[in-house]
Amino acid sequence: MKKIISICTAILVSTIAFAQQGKEFYNRYAGKNGVDAVYISPEMFALIKSIPDINVEGKDVDLGKVIKTLDGMYILDIENEKIAGELSADISRMTSEKRFELLMETVEGDGTSMRIYIVRKQDIVTDLLMHVREKGSASVISISATMPFEDLKKLLAGAID
């Protein structure tokens, strides 16, 4: 009986842990006062990929190639100190997991900070997360993708063409 209970507990814990990821954050904060939220589903990205060419005028860099490697995107933009603090604490907890790799970080004297994290399987980036924290605000862009690491490097260097 002990064994059965242990197996069930393990399954439940893994299920709950799965639910705690990006979607959970989005659902927790989206719709709150002072929170702008954007969600682009994997289905929408599939639709984008099926469209031959979408050109947005007035931009000097073509990101079409990178966008076609994306599978999902969550954006949270918070203009409320209390909620921004809560989100930042949640993000810190999540990114302390071993699978997250801190790619870039800037911390300024006034408390403003920017961190870019990735999760990758060998040379493929499966998750990209940017967290910006300023006094009274915070924003998070969370992307799931199948992006070659080389493409990400080019993107961050502004060298995608």
Partner: peptide, 21 residues
Amino acid sequence: PELAYSAAEKALYDITGMAGK
């Protein structure tokens, strides 16, 4: 999808801009 594409592109520009800084 065009609006979704624009939003995704804007997000990537934000990331590029922050990384550039």
